[in-house]
Design a protein around this nucleic acid. Structure first.
Length: 320
DNA sequence: GCCCGTCAAGGAGTA
DNA sequence: TACTCCTTGACGGGC
């Protein structure tokens, strides 16, 4: 038996005016003559983002959603190189605490996906440095929510830099420069252009990192099409994690724009996948990455209602 | 209230 | 070498 939880990404199409990613660009920041006033404005935006985030968690609780990706843009400009003197945490501490407490009370798995500019295998010193600053920000947010940071941030491997083998080795070299607390926070994901699941497994097995398998990326980018051959190895990368194996699920926008995400999830390929992995592990968390966010999740739940070997435990959790 | 240019980031691809 | 595109959601000026 496998218990599967479904989750979605960062914002809701149902909850109106609840963006967790309101922002101010650095260009606008500089236009405000009083720097302290500008910082206060950033703090107000961040507070609004966190309050909206709590509303999203409340919406999730109401719909039995126990798995959610937080926006990485909760605090605008927090990792900007010209704002290192800004002590943003004290005015936000209470809001972060409330978020973490709510998630714990409602048994929710929360995590982050730092954006694709966070590159641990960059040959450029300044890019690696900026990436570590952004990762540290994610770590601080998790700590502020009183969540165990272990395996809460999924990342891509990075650029191929015209030599994929060398790029993988650079990742390993640079990994030694990542503080241990940040290393423990990280999961790796196969991407749709450069690094296949096989490449990611090479790093994950060597460095002890859980692999977040993205099925759509695998279909777009692979050497060996049969992911099933690697499934046991993928499971094994999660052996030391306090959290269940995590997957990314999305559907291609079209044949032509295969790599882009569709509004919704095509149920048939997902059902075939579930059939293949059924019983192979106790728990599986599937992050639904679709343009229509929670609406796509609700539609998928509806589509899965007809599958005879699925037994629903609550609104978005089932046993198979 | 809608439309569209702009903002940020790093890499890939093309000319 | 220089550019355009990719991606994301939001901002903000113009009408």
């Amino acid at each position: 038996m496998t218990i599967v939880r479904l989750g979605y990404v960062a914002m809701s199409v149902h909850v109106k005016n609840a963006s967790p990613s309101q922002t101010m660009t650095f260009t606008r920041f500089k236009e405000i003559p009083n720097r302290d006033a500008a910082k206060r404005k950033l703090e107000r935006i961040a507070q609004s983002n966190l309050k909206n985030c709590l509303r999203l968690l409340q919406h999730n609780a109401a719909h039995d959603i126990h798995f959610f990706r937080l926006s990485s843009r909760l605090i605008p400009l927090a990792d900007h190189e010209e704002l290192t003197d800004w002590e943003y945490m004290p005015p936000l501490a209470a809001d972060f605490e409330a978020l973490g407490a709510y998630a714990k009370a409602h048994h929710m798995r929360l995590d982050f996906h730092p954006d694709h500019f966070v590159l641990l295998n960059s040959p450029r010193e300044e890019v690696l440095k900026a990436s570590l600053i952004t990762l540290k920000l994610h770590y601080k947010m998790l700590k502020a929510m009183n969540l165990n940071p272990r395996h809460r941030a999924v990342m891509h491997i990075g650029g191929a830099y015209h030599d994929k083998e060398q790029a993988l080795e650079t990742f390993i070299e640079n990994w030694g420069r990542v503080p241990q607390a940040l290393q423990q926070m990280i999961m790796l994901e196969n991407d749709d252009k450069s690094f296949t699941a096989e490449d990611a497994l090479y790093l994950c097995e060597k460095l002890g990192i859980p692999l977040v398998f993205d099925l759509h990326h695998h279909l777009a980018n692979h050497r060996e099409p049969r992911w099933q051959e690697s499934w046991e190895r993928i499971i094994a990368t999660w052996a030391d994690s306090p959290l269940p194996l995590k997957m990314h699920i999305s559907s291609p926008k079209s044949e032509k724009q295969f790599r882009a995400h569709h509004d919704h999830i095509e149920p048939e390929p997902f059902v075939r996948f579930l059939q293949d992995v059924r019983g192979s592990i106790d728990r599986l968390d599937c992050m639904i990455e679709a343009k229509k966010k929670d609406e796509a999740l609700f539609q998928l739940v509806n589509d899965l209602k007809n599958v005879p070997w699925i037994t629903w435990i609550d609104g978005t959790t089932f046993e198979m």
